[in-house]
Simulated scan of single mutants.
Amino acid sequence: MRNLVSDGNPSSQINLVIERCLGGPPPTDMMQQVALKQAPVTQFLKILPASFR
């Protein structure tokens, strides 16, 4: 994700890549924030659906 951001890809495209990798629509915006160290991973885990855990 960091490479996608540093390459200048828009958030919508990064979200699409995340969804393809995980096989479904997780909370992609939060996942980006965690990857870029803008939010703690614990915050992401709280909102992650049980199907992804």
Rank of each mutant, 00 (worst) to 15 (best):
M1D: 12
M1P: 12
R2F: 01
L4S: 09
L4T: 01
V5L: 04
V5I: 01
V5Y: 07
S6D: 06
S6Q: 05
S6L: 08
G8V: 01
S11Q: 07
S11V: 06
S11H: 03
S12K: 05
Q13T: 07
I14G: 02
L16C: 02
L16R: 07
I18F: 06
I18D: 10
I18T: 08
E19D: 10
E19R: 14
R20P: 00
R20C: 06
C21L: 15
L22Q: 12
G24N: 11
P25K: 14
P25L: 09
P25F: 06
P25I: 10
P26N: 11
P27W: 06
P27Y: 06
T28N: 04
D29A: 08
M30I: 05
M31W: 08
Q32F: 01
Q33W: 04
Q33V: 00
V34N: 03
A35K: 05
L36S: 01
Q38R: 14
Q38L: 14
Q38K: 14
P40W: 08
P40Y: 04
T42W: 08
Q43I: 11
F44E: 04
L45H: 09
L45C: 12
L45G: 05
K46V: 07
K46S: 13
K46W: 06
P49F: 12
F52I: 00
R53M: 08
